[in-house]
């Protein structure tokens, strides 16, 4: 849908396109908003605070974690540190949309930064990249250049086009962001209302670790990620009784450190293997060399 639309000059059309692009994601977000609202009430948060958190913090996973930590009387300092660590990934989003919003007025930047959630980012950056590539292709075709040839177009490098005033794509960002924002506020309210009707014997609080499981498992894409999750979990279970929730902070830091360390050793090994394999291939090109399989850095399979 996004890919077929031409970059529009009209702000209103851009805004509506942003809303439309966000709609399918809202289907997935809505239940989480409701679960958050219900859970916040079940955890003992006052209704007003539970609703306000959705507007003030406006970050799904951080809100779930905050709710959990407030319910277990975590000291505010530990709580804020956790929010900081959990939301650090938004710094990557911030860096990634920065070149596209660079030419905007400051008040636009401040407004769009508030709306920079996971979901709004996902839709917006896709749109920015696709429309940038399209503009680039059109420019290239107009100039009679093959699309693949001129990779140094400012559009491809994510730089602000010279006709920055005509670029209304920030309205798309605003549309997607506001659609998500409204959905999140309304669903929180519905959740708060429904959650208040549910008796404690339903163990509704258990939806929280379940939500986290649903978020963690798809993130375990490789060994460093699995190791990060396991070490953090084990340290977290051991340190659960430590004062001021320091166990949580320690567990998170150990997990991140283990993941990062394994990731860099894996990278280093892959680079070494790549070099070895290239060397092996060069050897096999010699007429009197061994069969390429024998020169692989690992033993050939037994069936051979």
């Amino acid at each position: 849908m996004i890919g077929q639309t031409e970059p529009m000059s009209d702000s209103r059309n851009e805004f509506l396109a942003g809303v439309r692009a966000e709609l399918p994601i809202l289907l997935g977000v809505a239940p989480f908003g409701m679960i958050y609202g219900a859970l916040a009430v079940a955890a003992g948060l006052p209704t007003a605070a539970a609703q306000a958190m959705s507007a003030i913090v406006f970050a799904g996973s951080a809100q779930f974690i905050l709710t959990q930590l407030i319910a277990t009387s975590t000291p505010p300092v530990v709580l804020l540190l956790t929010v900081f660590v959990v939301n650090l990934r938004h710094m990557l989003y911030s860096a990634s949309v920065a070149p596209y919003v660079h030419g905007l007025k400051t008040r636009w930047k401040w407004l769009l930064a508030y709306l920079l959630t996971d979901e709004a980012y996902a839709v917006t950056i896709t749109y920015y990249q696709q429309t940038t590539a399209q503009t680039h292709r059109r420019d290239a075709e107009a100039a009679g250049v093959e699309p693949g040839m001129s990779q140094h177009s400012p559009h491809l490098r994510g730089e602000v086009p010279e006709d920055a005033g005509a670029d209304k794509r920030h309205w798309f960002f605003l549309g997607g962001g506001l659609a998500l924002w409204s959905c999140w506020q309304v669903c929180t309210a519905i959740g708060i209302f429904l959650g208040a009707q549910v008796p404690p014997s339903w163990s509704l609080d258990f939806t929280l670790p379940l939500t986290f499981i649903a978020l963690v498992i798809p993130a375990l894409v490789d060994r460093p990620a699995v190791a990060a999750a396991l070490t953090a979990g084990i340290v977290g279970a051991i340190g659960a009784g430590w004062p001021y929730k320091t166990g949580l902070v320690a567990a998170a830091l150990v997990g991140i450190a283990v993941g990062t360390w394994l990731d860099s050793t894996q990278r280093a090994r892959q680079q070494r293997e790549y070099r070895n394999e290239s060397a092996g291939l060069t050897e096999s090109n010699k007429p009197d060399s061994l069969h390429p399989v024998d020169s692989l850095p690992y033993p050939a399979s037994e069936e051979k």
Binding site: L88, P209, V216, A232, A252
Partner: peptide, 17 residues
């Protein structure tokens, strides 16, 4: 590169206990 390990680490640190 380290940032991608933040969600699995923090969430597991809460799930396990």
């Amino acid at each position: 590169r380290g940032l991608r390990f933040v969600p699995p680490a923090v969430l597991s640190a809460i799930i396990f206990p």
